[in-house]
């Protein structure tokens, strides 16, 4: 059914992405591709992967933006990973004519049933965030599953039951959890850091939140020195060194 769940549970699984931490290494996108091209959801098509014009389906793409304050001239470089936000009012779900697109009642994950998708692409037109991509090989739409085949996989150790993008992030910029529970770690993080929605004017109520970069330090503060430099004084040096120093200084 492509109506949104009538009685959604309070549980809203999603991601929190810290733009202050992300270094733009693309590891999350690569591991996303790795997991989804090899696991339950495989294959995740690539077209001409080693040719002149490689193309393919990716669930996660990393942009790098620059924000320039026109008055002060201060600019900031922000690495910006973007994947499905698992919106509460997901427009991609309600436009689907076949029932292939759906939002899970129990945890809010938005999925595509590729067995009945007709590949009309309307969901990709409806999504403001570009979270849905067309798989030319299979003729159906694909999207981020929040690694549903990983987060509930009892064959994996508990600490591995998080989306591939989260477990791989070397900087710890991505967190996964229940954003419907105000007491969860991710909800507390969002509250503490003033996490926000992308394009709130589209009224899609995204579950995923972004944490803004922390304010930039301005002024003349220099970086702290890790080593005490001894070049300008021979105090504390050995007897021979002090004797050489005295001769050469004279």
């Amino acid at each position: 059914m492509t109506c949104l769940p009538k009685n959604p549970s309070a549980k809203k699984l999603g991601l929190v992405i810290d733009l202050d931490i992300c270094v733009g290494c693309h590891a999350c996108a690569v591991n996303c591709k790795e997991w989804n091209a090899a696991g339950q959801m495989a294959p995740l098509t690539d077209i001409d992967p080693y040719g002149a014009e490689p193309d393919g389906v990716w669930f996660n793409r990393i942009h790098t933006f620059e924000a320039v304050d026109t008055e002060s001239g201060i600019s900031r470089t922000v690495h910006f990973p973007k994947s499905c936000l698992h919106c509460e009012d997901a427009p991609c779900v309600t436009v689907c004519p076949t029932g292939a697109s759906y939002k899970r009642e129990e945890d809010g994950i938005v999925l595509v049933n590729t067995d009945i998708c007709i590949g009309c692409k309307l969901c990709s037109w409806a999504c403001p965030y570009g979270a849905r991509e067309y798989d030319e090989d299979e003729g159906v739409m694909k999207k981020c599953t929040l690694c549903i085949d990983k987060i509930y996989n009892e064959n994996l150790p508990q600490e591995s039951r998080v989306p591939a993008c989260v477990s791989t992030c070397p900087a710890g910029a991505r967190s996964f959890g229940d954003l419907g529970d105000p007491a969860s770690d991710v909800s507390k993080l969002v509250a503490a850091r003033k996490g926000y929605d992308l394009m709130p004017e589209q009224a899609t109520k995204p579950v995923n939140k972004y944490l803004p970069p922390r304010p930039k330090r301005v002024g003349n503060a220099t970086a702290p020195r890790l080593l005490e430099h001894k070049d300008d004084s021979s105090d504390g040096a050995g007897l021979l060194a002090r004797w050489v120093d005295r001769i050469l200084t004279a």
Binding site: L19, G24, A29, E53, P54, D55, V57, W58, R61, I62, H63, T64, F65, E66, A67, V68, D69, T70, I74, S75, R76, T77, V78, F80, K121, S124, W125, G130, E133, Y134, Y196, D197, L198, M199, P200, E201, Y210, P212, P213
Partner: peptide, 29 residues
């Protein structure tokens, strides 16, 4: 600015695309 939520830091522009070839999104939209 609203798409990235970075408007409070100033005027936003893309300096590095996620990939150097056009993807499905760019071809379709």
């Amino acid at each position: 600015e609203t798409a990235t939520g970075l408007g409070e830091f100033g005027k936003v522009r893309l300096i590095e695309s996620p990939h150097d070839q056009p993807n499905y999104l760019l071809k379709e939209m």
